[in-house]
Simulated assay, not measured.
Amino acid sequence: MLILPCNASAQTPQQILKEVGITPHPGQSIPLDAVFKDHSSDEISLREALDHQPAVLCLVYFDCPMLCKLSADGLVRAVSEIQEEVGDDFQVIMVSFNPADTPEKANLARQRLIQKYGRSPEGSGWYCLTGSQAEIERLTSAVGFQAHWDETIQQYAHASGLIIVSGEGVITQYLDGVNYVPRELSQAIKAAGDEKVSEKSANSFLTCYLYDPTTGRFGSAVQWTVRILGGLTIVGMLWMMIGLQRQNLSQNDSD
């Protein structure tokens, strides 16, 4: 998979959004010999980061204005509510898909995650990694991750989700969204520990693109998606209220 620069004049936002996402590859392996830099600028391979334990892998970039932070916060909330301990039972590995990201940015992101998690002040099991374009592409290709850099707005168009891998680097499951159900995450980690590849992997993922930091708003493509989802939610609530009212009327008539 290539993370390619985009020219806004050549492609519309809708075209770009169609080209980004995550194509699940359950059962395939990540490149364990791929080498990245950790928060201290030390080189570390994915094999060393896994250390024969299951892991939650998350692809981010540390300057993401919205979705990466939401996904990271959702992950911390979920792992804070499960019995398994980061570092003892599984690893959390966040890898930046932006080759321009630095270990300094990774360190800031890692400290924020550790502080929110609260269970292990020393940060055992928490990895925030940066790397070269070549090593990033080896990993993103293996997990089916596709993103585009838009030079005009200086942002990536990308999807968000969690990739669960076994201690030997086999992809066992994908989880979508930014708010993760603790029970589902716990089950996915246990299954990865047993080398069980799930058939229930997600196949649709939230996409982040066209966030304008000067206005605090997303571009029209994402705005319309949010509006449609909001409208469907309102319709669903109204339908439920009508159903309850009808049920109450029926009960009154029977009385």
Rank of each mutant, 00 (worst) to 15 (best):
A49D: 10
F62A: 01
F145Q: 07
Q247H: 15
M241A: 15
N252K: 12
L232A: 09
N98H: 12
E137L: 09
N248H: 04
T225F: 10
S41H: 10
Y209I: 07
A191E: 13
M240I: 05
P24K: 08
L113S: 13
V222N: 02
I164H: 02
E199Y: 00
R246P: 00
I163L: 13
L232E: 03
V178Y: 08
N98Q: 04
L232Q: 05
I228C: 03
G216V: 10
I189T: 04
S29W: 00
V95F: 01
A100V: 07
S9R: 12
I22V: 14
I82T: 09
S198A: 13
E184R: 04
P31E: 06
A10N: 11
V222C: 01
T233C: 08
F205S: 05
R47L: 14
R217L: 13
G231T: 05
S45Y: 04
V79I: 15
L129G: 06
D253I: 02
S160A: 15
Y117H: 14
G21Y: 04
H39P: 00
T225D: 13
E19C: 03
F62M: 07
L46N: 03
T172Y: 10
S80F: 02
M1T: 10
P99N: 02
T172R: 08
D88E: 14
A202F: 03
I228T: 10
Q247E: 14
E137D: 05
R112W: 11
C68T: 09
G125C: 09
H25E: 06
A106T: 09
I189M: 03
S41K: 09
V222F: 11
A10H: 11
R183W: 04
I16M: 14
P99E: 07
D255M: 09
Q247P: 00
E195A: 07
N203S: 15
A188H: 08
S120H: 15
T152Y: 11
P121M: 09
Q187H: 08
V235Y: 02
I16C: 05
L206M: 10
V79G: 01
Q155N: 13
